[in-house]
Nucleic acid binder design. Structure first.
Lengths: 192, 192
DNA sequence: TATTTACATGAACACTTGTTCATGTAAATA
DNA sequence: TATTTACATGAACAAGTGTTCATGTAAATA
């Protein structure tokens, strides 16, 4: 337990620092001084700086996929599925804001072959979202927009949350955020 | 003219490379070998690696502000203003996809005091968009969503363009993209 | 008690980084 | 023709990088 606690605390501190400075800009010595320990000591916790990034990224990536698969397999309408996708993103933003910011900003720093693996997972996720939207369009529930554009525009509406919620405390009630974004996505800005 | 041509070509090549690898990951030696020239030669064009990034970022930032100010000062409806903002983003994406991607991805690599200046410009821009949306809400043209959320969600819908359009040729007709995104933003996904 | 385990240390490594220097050349300008 | 200008070169630098090493300690386990 104490073993885990120590490593976990290291991982948490690192995550925060990497978010502030960026992965490339954060040196092992930065991590060490932020943890009040010696540089070499860090290698008691991790194999390499790269593996640290990999741990974070594939960690949340898995969480997203797990949630997504649950949603897709459930017997609910396309509209409800999309609502749940929005809810999942906001949930994860509240619970793991730093990991989410990494997912958006730092995945480019992965190296092959992990980079390809990650991109594949990313594409798979996007395709699952695309499928939900496609179903909705075919059922006449969603407007028949270009599928690619609709999917990526939708995903984008969930992305600014990460940019805004790193470092700052989340002021607004998550449920309220969810309500607002759902309304934007489903009904748009205009009244008519 | 030949002076400008040479420097411009250097700037264009650098821009592409920095987009592929990221600013931090792109070394002066990378630039040199990509340009088939010696490392030292690069410093005939630029003062420092940092100044290179600054040139790019403040360059497009200015373009955005210029376009935005024209829109804001024109005597048209809030709805029309928002449409023009969408058009501006897509226009710039088509004309300067690499600069735009930098604007989104690499501004964190600026150093003080340029970083603060950039963030201030960024905030100013976002506030101008916010004002347009606020006007629309007050006039009853736009749905009364939370202003912050509506603004950033709107801006996000224009951001994925950059991610998707670096490196790849833009397949879809810009006018069609504009039409689709405008529809998404104004009317949302749902039919009802 | 003996031995493993978890964590800590500081020096050293091999390498990469941005940048500068002194020098050179070929064309444009005066 | 003389001189400035634009561009090119290769070596060198000082600083910073991730990582490893041999060694140490204090507590948990056997």
């Amino acid at each position: 337990m104490s073993k885990m606690t120590k490593k976990e605390r290291f991982l948490a501190t690192s995550l925060k620092l990497i978010n502030e400075k960026g992965f490339k800009a954060t040196t092992i010595r930065d991590l060490a001084s932020s943890l009040n320990c010696e540089v070499a000591n860090i290698y008691n916790y991790i194999d390499s700086k790269q593996s640290l990034l990999e741990t974070y990224l594939f960690g949340i990536s898995n969480e997203f996929h797990f949630a997504m698969d649950t949603i897709i397999d459930s017997k609910i309408s396309s509209e409800e599925k999309l609502k749940l996708i929005i809810r999942t993103h906001i949930d994860l933003m509240v619970k793991k804001p730093y990991e989410l910011a990494l997912l958006v900003n730092e995945w480019r720093n992965l190296k092959e072959p992990k980079l390809s693996t990650f991109i594949a997972e990313k594409n798979t996720y996007e395709n699952k979202v695309k499928t939900v939207i496609k179903e909705g369009m075919e059922q006449g529930v969603f407007r028949s927009l270009d599928l690619e554009i609709a999917t990526f525009t939708f995903l984008s509406t969930l992305r600014w949350l990460h940019d805004k919620n790193t470092g700052y405390p989340i002021k607004m009630d998550p449920l309220e955020i969810e309500k607002q974004i759902t309304q934007f996505v489903f009904s748009g800005l205009c009244i008519d």
